[in-house]
Amino acid sequence: MEFVVFTITALIAVVGAAAMLLSKNAVHSALFMLLNFSAIAVLYLLLRAPFLFAVQLIVYAGAIIVLFLFVVMLLGAERAEDEQDRLGWQRPLALGMAALLLFEVLYVFFARTNTSLTSPSVSAEDFATPVKIGEALFSTYLLPFEITSVILLAALVGVVVLHHRQAAHSEQ
């Protein structure tokens, strides 16, 4: 039962990701990305992590892609631009790096397939409850957690500063 659900969900996730890359229209891309994120949320559920399932849906599906859609719709930027792609040289580089990553994933999968996923500490019933995750975030991983929040704050301040400069320019 679990295996069937996993296979279907994984297929949907992969198809969603591929279709997101291949579709010409930015809104279609965003919708395929939504499909991909939802499938990943179901995968979390299969891993007995309902908290991550909910957070994945709330944060990625419910907020981030809505913002993508909002910006694309507001700017009317859904069609691919006609002018020459100036970042064309990055494409082979990206393909090479993706191949490297895929190789790494396959290596880890085949070399360690008997250990990591089924070890007792991971498959404990309550390893992904909200309480456990909260404890981990605020004790073991406190420093990375706080640094992440500072980085996000820096991004926010940066937006305000840039916008302020622009406003000052237009006044002159």
Partner: peptide
């Protein structure tokens, strides 16, 4: 166990 978060997630979708 995360019923409330489920409600919030569905609302935001």
């Amino acid at each position: 166990s995360v019923g409330i978060l489920y409600l919030l997630a569905v609302t935001s979708i």
